[in-house]
């Protein structure tokens, strides 16, 4: 097997909550290969968010190992983890987390500010990423001047700007209406087709169906790991729009 983009070995995360010992993850072994589109599913409290944070190097595991592109990132310091995130990982959040009163272009450039990328190069790469998500015309707009879907596109451009090995999306459609959500999923599928490795956390089976592999979590354990032929988000979007048209007609 080729080196996985990210792999976990007997991964455990424990919390201390009000004197109670909580085992949020109970020995997870997962390997994600380059070019995969993985959906992480499970009800709240299942450990999927904890798993996501560990994959994103936002947190350190209590036990076990995380290998990012074959390198052990388990025992790195906070500063070293920051550099790893800056170099290898792109984040998309449910609440977009854009900087207010800052243009779309500056928002997208943010990760490059914390790298050694020269400014002119940062601007050209951020511009490319905004073109890729279809917002080339709105580079000078502030988040408050953009719709929810557009804001999430800016966030996706920001996640892509450092050419990450792994794109992590935490409920990216959670704050959007169905149609916009489908548009965003269509964008993720396009990125997947271009060869990006994507891990997406969701509790909606409909959304998970657009991925090529589904991981099911329950009570801190991985209870399902299956590959499937992904549904087309483009087709779903078309279907949704036709249905709505039909509803308004009647």
């Amino acid at each position: 097997m080729a080196t996985a983009v990210i792999a976990t070995r007997a991964l455990e995360k424990h919390y201390q909550m009000g004197g109670q010992h909580l085992r949020a993850l109970k020995g997870i072994d997962v390997s994600i290969a380059a070019g995969e589109f993985v959906a992480v599913m499970g009800p709240s409290g299942s450990g999927k968010s904890t798993f996501m944070n560990l994959l994103g190097c936002l947190d350190s595991p209590s036990l076990g190992q995380i290998l990012l592109q074959g390198e052990d990132v388990t025992t790195l310091s906070a500063a070293q983890l920051a550099r790893v995130r800056n170099k290898y990982i792109g984040f998309v959040f449910q609440q977009f987390n854009l900087l207010p009163r800052t243009t779309a272009l500056d928002n997208v450039m943010l990760p490059l500010l914390y790298s050694t990328t020269p400014k002119h190069q940062a601007i050209s790469r951020a511009t490319e990423c905004l073109q890729l998500v279809g917002l080339a015309q709105r580079m000078d707009h502030h988040p408050s001047q953009l719709s929810g879907g557009q804001q999430q596109r800016v966030a996706i451009a920001r996640a892509l700007v450092n050419q990450p090995a792994l794109l992590l999306a935490d409920e990216p459609t959670g704050a959007l209406d169905t149609e916009t959500g489908l548009e965003i999923m269509q964008l993720f599928q396009q990125l997947h087709q271009q060869g990006k490795t994507i891990v997406l956390v969701t509790h909606e089976p409909d959304i998970a169906a657009f991925a090529s592999r589904q991981l099911m979590f329950r009570d801190g354990e991985l209870i399902g790991d299956k590959g499937s032929q992904p549904q087309s988000a483009a087709a779903a979007l078309q279907h949704f729009r036709q249905q709505r048209l039909a509803e308004t007609a009647t």
Binding site: L58, A79, A82, R85, N86, F91, F93, L110, Y114
Partner: peptide, 16 residues
């Protein structure tokens, strides 16, 4: 706080 979290997530070291 959220802005700080975001900056850290995209690679800002604590000292930065």
């Amino acid at each position: 706080t959220r802005e700080i979290g975001l900056r850290m997530a995209v690679g800002a070291e604590p000292k930065v």
